[in-house]
């Protein structure tokens, strides 16, 4: 399972960049529709995730790469989610000790 020298394709790179540009325009444009609260964040982040996916898979060429490289990337995101998730288990469920504090 050699990971390494995968020739990049000029066409694929250019198309990726175009897709990224289009998504950027969409994410800015969507803002003027004023989607109601939690959904605007969800839309913005979903678009960002798709963009990041394109960069990782095509520019960084992870789709042709060793699975350990993919695994390390997945782990970093997973552990970031653990950090945020378990911390929010506290911050979202605190009972104010001093009323009104």
């Amino acid at each position: 399972m050699s990971s390494g020298h995968h020739a990049l394709s000029f066409k694929v790179l250019i198309s990726t960049a175009i897709a990224l540009a289009v998504l950027t325009v969409i994410t800015v444009a969507v803002r003027s529709i004023h989607i109601p609260s939690p959904f605007n964040i969800i839309v913005a982040i979903s678009i960002a995730v798709v963009k990041a996916y394109l960069v990782v898979m095509y520019f960084m060429n992870l789709r042709n790469d060793s699975r350990f490289n993919l695994l390390s990337f997945v782990f970093s995101v997973l552990f970031l989610l653990i950090l945020v998730g378990l911390t929010m288990l506290d911050t979202m469920f605190r009972v104010p000790i001093v009323p009104g504090f």
Partner: peptide, 15 residues
């Protein structure tokens, strides 16, 4: 498990 260092810190009872 890191929160076991914070049982009396004022973190939420749930956590």
């Amino acid at each position: 498990v890191w929160g076991h260092h914070m049982f009396v810190s004022g973190q939420s009872t749930l956590s």
